[in-house]
Amino acid sequence: MKVTQRLLETLGIERERLRLAWISASEGAKFAETVTEFTNQLKELGPNPLRTSPGVQEKPCSA
């Protein structure tokens, strides 16, 4: 995880875009909470910066 986050950062992708959480099958509430929180964070960060780099065809970002 750490290695990948560092790599993403070098590529110019915020490390917050990658997350690992251990959630058991019995922790439904925790799962929903984590996903909602992560989705909100990603919305705040906006589309992947690599998608909008200059010289690259822009693709519609499907949510």
Binding site: E9, T10, L11, G12, E14, P49, L50, S53, P54, G55
Partner: peptide
Amino acid sequence: GFESRPPAERRSYLMKELS
């Protein structure tokens, strides 16, 4: 040195190389 450059610059450098 590469990591000290702003993210956008790093992205565009790599994209330019890999193009």
